[in-house]
Amino acid sequence: MDGSGGTPAGDATSGAAAVEMNGVIALLGGFPALSGLDLTVAHGEVVLVAGPNGAGKTTLLNVCGGLVPVARGSAHVLGVDLTGDRAALRHRVGLLGHRNGLYGDLTVSENLTFWSDLVGATPEETARSVEAAGLAGRLADVKVTALSAGQRRRTALAVLLIRRAELWLLDEPHAGLDPDGRGELDALIRLAATSGVTVMLASHDLDRSRDLADREITVVGGAVVEAA
């Protein structure tokens, strides 16, 4: 377990790691998208997951989110054993893939109140999240389909804030955003990180994302090849 590729030097609290993976193999329709991956991510860390297309970055995030089962190996996320019942993990993880998970026909505030009602967030908490995501005011009553790509992304992240997700798994969050959109998104991710959220960020936009991340790992062939 110790000495795995992803363990940062001098990590004194490996028992309290947010993500702990050993020899994880995960399958996509019979294909080993993860082929024995070792990784440790500490609480509150922002980790950039780099690597070529098809390396297994998305699958890694999906495994952490409990969407793709662990076929072999051991994996714990936020202390929950992924090879067992993943139900306990579910509400604590936020996964944002290529899609935003929003209802296009509803407005921003309707989408957000839907989620805050579902998870039982108070109106103050919701208002704070909306404020943090820069969605207060005029934007709140705009239909999601009428938003820019960046605004939609921020709405999706606001849902994660409202859900008080402890681990954010962001798959190419910058894709399709203009420079302004990226800047606003980065600010929001930084804000979440300073409040103790652990972030795993898969990205091609390495220069941009390095500024955000505490640490960078590279995934190739479904395993971590280099941890910086």
């Binding site: 969407l67 579910r90 996964l95 290529h98 935003n100 998970g101 929003l102 209802y103 026909d105 859900r163």
Partner: peptide
């Protein structure tokens, strides 16, 4: 279709609703 158009069903599942 409402749920799958933008991955809302997936979000609901990940959130453990």
């Amino acid at each position: 279709a409402i749920e799958t158009a933008d991955g809302a069903l997936e979000s609901l599942r990940v959130a453990g609703i």
